[in-house]
Design a protein around this nucleic acid. Structure first.
Lengths: 265, 265
DNA sequence: ATGTTTATTTTCTTTTTTGTTCGATTATGA
DNA sequence: TCATAATCGAACAAAAAAGAAAATAAACAT
């Protein structure tokens, strides 16, 4: 394989810099040749080579003086959401992943929180993970001990989610040992809410098809509201957050026998 | 093989280092040969061997000077394949996209050629595109005038393809105005061949469900062979290549009423 | 004790990456 | 529109790193 490539002369080189360049680009929306050269302590030409390769791979879009994010799924709004409460999400995800056993079938749905969980599951072995989230699939592709199955569905540009009847239909063909889901908002009376009515149907199907269910929410979701109701915390086994729930909601959870895990960021 | 050796146990240092190397890599996102050598008090060569083994196991991605965390679907072999005959693929894709009408339902399957077609379709309007290729979905997400539907399926790490019964089952629910497919090899007698038997079933289903079918192949596919037969060119409406087909195959196509379009790179 | 096996080091060669220079190309302001 | 300055891409030499092969060292079984 290697000689074949060398014979033809095509070569895809990687460096330490390229992943970090992408990270900076995602954070700032753009990168300049000059600032990157200063940041890494290398020549402008070296950075240009990196940017050219990243652009050829379709990961960035080259512009005069630097590069910008390609206009694909990776929407600005989405990247911003992902950066929001990053530490809290990582802490929640770590606590959640610690309670996810190995050797099981698992569903992960849409949301930046579940993506964080996926990242923490990279070390888990012998997993069958089904997801309707393109980003989760991409992340878990890096785990060789994990079979990844993607549900069908309409691609939602804003976050790479696969929604609609096709998604729900696929999910109905499975029975999961565990599902980790996220939601747009968590009501004070313990109702899980979502912005997208299409996604609600998918989430409800997931809950029906799973033996155990976890919810991952950061505290910002408690302050928000959303129009569509997915389910009640009463139907879940465990909820992972970064800050203690309000006392009244806490009492409700106790009554429902829903465990609450508070992860310290 | 490796663990067996360790169990018998000569010097177990290697099995100590490798997990720790992974840990450091997960923490920092990268590792350098030099710092690891200093950290463990061994030679650069020894670290290189560790990194090579970890890379072979798919746990890390080797780069000059060290290693980084493997990044999702973007497999090394895949990136190399994509860079191969890049100009030819773009030319083919452009010619193909020019013959794809707007306002239709379209299927694009796995392959770097179909990805190139997707890139050329970014300007098409009012399309419904179904694909079992995660990369195609990501590319077309940038086209706001295009509804993108992803089939379900097992994620194939090597190229982001979604394969298996789930994919075929989803496809059976649609009827496409047009399908653009690629293949691993094109035989001299006009047979479309593929390396992956799972993908063959998917491709055959696509052909059955489509009113018209296009094939995109660059000339390198004519020199190769593959074990599984998808179909014959006789069943297709048009084939797009970058170099003229061999005269005998050309005659066959004329007899089959299969149009051949040669795009100049 | 000695031979076997495996991990590591040493030494050497080959490959890849980086820096430099220079002409071509592209933005920007007058 | 043109002039000017910045940026880009290509080519080549130098430096850094990877890889291969043989030697060495340690652990174990017989």
């Amino acid at each position: 394989m290697a000689h074949l490539v060398n014979l033809i002369g095509a070569r895809m080189s990687q460096s330490f810099r390229q992943p970090e360049i992408l990270e900076i680009a995602r954070r700032d929306g753009k990168v300049t040749v000059e600032s990157l050269a200063a940041h890494f302590g290398v020549t402008l030409q070296t950075i240009r080579r990196d940017l050219t390769e990243l652009a050829e791979a379709g990961r960035l879009e080259r512009v005069h003086g630097g590069a910008i994010l390609p206009s694909g799924v990776s929407n600005i709004g989405y990247e911003e959401r992902r950066a929001l409460n990053k530490d809290a999400k990582t802490a929640i995800a770590r606590a959640c992943a610690a309670e996810v056993p190995e050797n099981i079938s698992l569903f992960l749905n849409i949301g930046t929180s579940t993506e964080a969980v996926a990242r923490e599951l990279l070390g888990h072995r012998n997993m069958l993970v089904v997801t309707n989230n393109m980003n989760v699939a991409n992340i878990l592709a890096a785990n060789p001990d994990c079979e990844v199955i993607v549900t069908g569905g309409n691609l939602r540009r804003s976050d790479g989610g696969l929604v609609g009847t096709l998604a729900a239909e696929t999910i109905r063909q499975f029975k999961f040992d565990l599902a980790v889901i996220g939601c747009s908002a968590l009501d004070r009376d313990g109702d899980l809410l979502d912005f997208d009515i299409q996604e609600v149907g998918v989430s409800q199907t997931i809950l029906r098809q799973s033996r155990r269910t976890f919810l991952a929410v950061d505290h910002s979701k408690l302050k928000r509201s959303a129009p569509a109701r997915i389910a009640s915390l009463a139907e879940l086994d465990c909820v992972f957050t970064d800050r203690p729930l309000p006392p009244d909601l806490m009492r409700l959870c106790q009554g429902w026998d829903t465990r609450v895990v508070t992860a310290q960021p």
